[in-house]
């Protein structure tokens, strides 16, 4: 089940898991994405950073088509996301997304939260789904919370449960939209540890984060967004030695 892939060797031979080409997106008169392009290869961790309003969350949400783009092209796991005839549910079976506000279903136990989609979308049997729930919960260190309700968990535990819920669908790529922004430093740490373990397992990931130290440690590639454009991109090293004054200023204030 666990694919431990070496990002560097696979990247050259396979088409990217996520690719954005010249993506434009406006909300009314506000231009949010102004010709954004980037690619994520299999097993790679791409971190999107930038100020609030720079378009990084919108770019992430476009990948799972929570926002429709005005022009350009997005291809995710061979799904042409920008195609109006896109099979949306097929795309979303391949893409897992975790939000800032966890969004666990409050009326369901953690187990029911996790088994809901595999059972109703993939037609997995209840018994199989429960076994998978146990496995993914163990992966995020919450196997004892199976029969608890979300409100009985701390914020960090809820976020880890939300990650487990996404993992149970066995996605090919995971999107993380500021998943630690609602958490205190201690709880942030436990969530980031889970994400690090996923990266070590070879999961392809795109994440929006304000945790610069974490980004430096985990990113294969960093995309710095500024005013709707990819202002600077490169390996994690650009965070310590930025080429543009905007990124220098951003990491300067961000640390």
């Amino acid at each position: 089940m666990h694919k431990t892939l070496n990002a560097a060797t696979n990247a050259a031979t396979q088409s990217p898991v996520v690719s954005l080409k010249n993506v434009h997106k406006s909300f009314g008169t506000l231009k949010v994405l102004d010709g954004v392009s980037f690619e994520v290869d299999r097993g790679e961790v791409l971190v999107l950073i930038g100020r609030s309003g720079s378009g990084k969350s919108t770019a992430l949400r476009c990948i799972d088509r929570f926002e429709r783009i005005d022009s350009g092209e997005i291809v995710v796991c061979d799904h042409r996301v920008s195609d109006p005839k896109l099979d949306l549910r097929a795309l979303r079976q391949d893409v897992g997304i975790v939000f800032q506000s966890y969004n666990l279903f409050p009326h369901l136990t953690i187990e029911e939260n996790i088994t809901l989609a595999p059972c109703s979308v993939k037609g997995v049997s209840k018994a199989e789904a429960k076994e998978e729930a146990r496995r993914v919960l163990a992966q995020v260190g919450l196997e004892d919370k199976l029969h608890q309700y979300p409100e009985q968990l701390s914020g960090g535990q809820q976020q880890r449960a939300a990650i487990a819920r996404s993992l149970a669908m066995q996605p090919k790529v995971m999107l993380f939209d500021e998943v630690t922004s609602a958490l205190d430093p201690e709880l942030t740490g436990e969530v980031l540890k889970v994400i690090e373990a996923l990266a070590a397992d070879g999961m392809t990931m795109v994440m929006v984060t304000h945790e610069m130290g974490f980004a430096r440690g985990i990113a294969n590639r960093v995309v710095f967004m500024h005013r709707g454009k990819v202002h600077e991109t490169g390996p994690a090293a650009i965070l310590t030695s930025p080429a543009t004054p905007e990124l220098a200023q951003f990491v300067g204030t961000g640390l």
């Binding site: 979303r92 893409v95 939000f99 969004n103 279903f105 979308v121 996404s166």
Partner: peptide
């Protein structure tokens, strides 16, 4: 957010 989470899980 509840509905988005469900959409993200590919529920109809």
């Amino acid at each position: 957010g509840q509905i988005e989470a469900a959409e993200g899980l590919a529920l109809s």
